[in-house]
Amino acid sequence: MRVQRAPRAADQPQRAPEGLVRHDRAPAVPTPAAGPAPARSADGTGAFSADVDLDLTALAGRSPEDLFAEVVVRLLTACHREGLVDVGSALRVVTPTDGGFAGVRVDGAVDRSAPGLSAVLGAPGTELPPADAGTLTVVDARGSRTRAQGDWGLGGGLGVATLGRVGSAVVSSRRPAGLVLGERLGAGLGLTVPDAARAAQVVRALDAVARSLEGPVG
């Protein structure tokens, strides 16, 4: 026998399940179109930035640390596929602090699983680790209301990605079964690379991260 317990006060009220079908007569609200929005045109000179609105609903049950690790692993995989990072690349994860940035450096990050990365990131440093040309920096800006854009003045390596604030919104859309009401967990993910010639790879990588999070996540 396994005991199924009622949720504690801290776990209530419950979230609406994803894909909830309700037979309400409220007008359909179109879902905002997803896809990376280039922030600057790619003329082949200077840096290039783009950001995408991630749908994190499938990760709603994860702890904040696991959710972050999951997104970073997907970003690394996508960047690796697009040639933006390679197996030997290092990862630098930093958080804005009062005095600047603090964080950790992880070598060989492309091979790590989300739980593995989450474990490493569990012990954040107090200083800004150095970056070399083979380092991708990820700014954990979930605690801030700023947009997930720009290189935060941390340019120099392979690029700077930013995961912005995670927020939830009630959204509705029409499906064959009727109007679908659901709660959507979202966050912005931005990526800036020093060389605008790689704009297409950046857009594809961000697109792949967004797509990988649609539907059920294992």
Binding site: A6, P7, Q12, P13, Q14, A16, P17, L20, H23
Partner: peptide, 13 residues
């Protein structure tokens, strides 16, 4: 009924 109201709220018609 409390289970339905708390955890099943979204399903109740």
């Amino acid at each position: 009924a409390a289970l339905a109201a708390n955890e099943g709220f979204w399903h109740l018609d």
